[in-house]
């Protein structure tokens, strides 16, 4: 299997006035193609810093980070933007959709920054991605006309549209109720089953049960990196939930 993410002795520290804060203190792990990894940790554990570095929004102070074989250390701002554009699909807790903009236009946003994609192909791929997340009926709805779960599906479609090597989700179910969370997790499992590599950052332990590997951070170091033998099916959990009163 190919290594999508390769991290070796990665450190990140921030200088704040006189003090130096060590957010990550030497972390090493690799993520292979097709894995569904949950990165867990309480606030202050370094999980956000980890996510920023994984997403090429930030760079390590020292150590190695390579995504899809490309070492990102010392790359320019523009080169990092290109990596984000072509290799990474972002999903945020607050969806971050453009207001008053249709689902299709939201989904095609990353392709607007990739000049090798024609406008016809862009539209086609956005519709394809929205169909994959079950929104083929809502292509021209704006975020205000969609429920929270549907908005997050648009965001997932946006993350899929550039066919990234890894999807990075940051508390992607944080704003959703349990039922909708499970629906979204079922969608992630579906995508993972189709071969997508997913890294899911969360502080909710029950979300981790749906992934096949969990990395737990504390105070900037990994305290646990375990394979989940008994992956819970999100669609199964959904079926087991009591039916909602209409």
């Amino acid at each position: 299997m190919k290594n999508i993410i390769d991290i070796k002795d990665l450190k990140r520290h921030f200088v704040m006035g006189e003090e130096t804060v060590h957010a990550l203190k030497g972390i090493s792990y690799t993520i292979e193609e097709g894995e569904f990894v949950t990165i867990m940790g309480s606030s202050g554990s370094g999980k956000s810093t980890m996510l920023n570095i994984l997403g090429c929004l930030d760079q390590p102070s020292s150590g190695r980070y390579a995504i899809d074989g490309i070492a990102v250390k010392d790359l320019s701002r523009n080169a990092l933007a290109e990596i984000r554009n072509e290799k990474i699909g972002f999903i945020f807790q607050a969806y971050n959709l453009l207001p008053r903009t249709t689902a299709v236009e939201n989904a095609e946003l990353p392709l607007l920054y990739n000049s090798s994609v024609s406008s016809a192909e862009r539209r086609e791929r956005a519709i394809e991605a929205l169909t994959k997340v079950g929104l083929s009926e809502r292509l021209y709805h704006t975020p205000s006309q969609l429920s929270g779960g549907q908005q997050q599906r648009v965001a997932i479609a946006r993350a899929l549209v550039n066919d990234p090597v890894v999807i990075l989700a940051d508390e992607a179910t944080g704003n959703l109720d349990t039922r909708t969370s499970y629906e979204i997790m079922a969608l992630f499992q579906e995508l993972n089953a189709a071969g997508k590599t997913i890294v899911f950052v969360t502080h909710e332990p029950d979300i981790a049960m749906f992934s096949n590997r969990t990395i737990v951070l504390k105070d900037g170091t990994i305290i646990k990196d375990s394979v989940n033998d008994k992956v819970l099916s999100a669609s199964g959990a959904l079926a087991a939930m009591p039916k909602e009163e209409d």
């Binding site: 997403g55 929004l57 701002r77 523009n78 933007a81 290109e82 984000r84 554009n85 072509e86 972002f90 945020f92 607050a94 971050n96 453009l98 946003l109 990353p110 920054y113 990739n114 946006r158 550039n162």
Partner: peptide, 15 residues
């Protein structure tokens, strides 16, 4: 936030 998103999905500063 919109600018942040555009940067995150691959927009460059010059874009």
């Amino acid at each position: 936030r919109e600018i942040g998103l555009r940067l995150a999905v691959g927009g460059k500063g010059s874009d």
